[in-house]
């Protein structure tokens, strides 16, 4: 049995579930947090989404089919949770997702958990103006250093399409940074 299979079977067993869940949180909390944080930008929102992600993983572990890595599956859940969170926020405020991100970025300057300079803010603005999928792909490739193969499994699309999307994303960001 592989380490992943052992972990999954421990999560499915009621006697070992709690200990396995602790192990899961310990090993994956940081990676998932940073992925979520880059999408929602704000620490408090990232905290909420991260907690919901782990709870969803705990409640749905029996649905994990094993056709991908456990982390890939969790990453996918985290991505959907973050996107849902942003969509709900935008809907609640009666604005679209681009306007929401613009609003969040404008608050970053005064955010105590943001230590970036003007260049960092400009980069966040550049990323925010990308379509949702390109934004996800850019974050996963540039910041998380995931391979295209892994990103393809998370987003359920072809590697070729991903590479093209990433190329376009980088081009748009460069254009944005050069113009502003």
């Amino acid at each position: 049995m592989t380490e992943q299979e052992l972990l999954v079977s421990a999560l499915l067993d009621s006697e070992t579930r709690e200990a396995a869940f602790s192990h899961l949180i310990k090993n994956y909390k940081q990676r998932l947090y940073w992925h979520i944080r880059r999408l929602v930008l704000n620490h408090d929102d990232a905290d909420d989404v991260l907690q919901e992600t782990f709870i969803k993983v705990y409640k749905n572990i029996e649905k994990f089919r094993g056709d991908s890595q456990l982390f890939t599956w969790m990453y996918r859940i985290a991505t959907h949770q973050a996107i849902d969170f942003l969509n709900k926020q935008a809907k609640y405020r009666g604005i679209d997702d681009y306007e929401l991100l613009e609003s969040k970025i404008s608050h970053l300057e005064s955010d105590v958990y943001f230590d970036g300079d003007a260049a960092a803010l400009k980069l966040q603005q550049a990323i925010a103006q990308l379509p949702e999928k390109q934004r996800l792909i850019f974050n996963m490739k540039y910041f998380d250093d995931l391979k295209f193969k892994e990103i393809a499994k998370i987003l359920d699309c072809s590697e070729g399409g991903l590479k093209a999307s990433y190329h376009h994303a980088v081009k748009k960001i460069k254009l944005f940074l050069d113009e502003k």
Binding site: K29, Y33, W34, R38, L50, G116
Partner: peptide, 24 residues
């Protein structure tokens, strides 16, 4: 901050990662 590319901007509250398991 975890990733060198993020080091210039995102910050996490102290002890956040130590306490998150309990919160979850």
């Amino acid at each position: 901050a975890g990733n060198p590319k993020d080091q210039t901007f995102f910050i996490v509250p102290q002890d956040y990662f130590e306490n998150i398991e309990g919160k979850i």
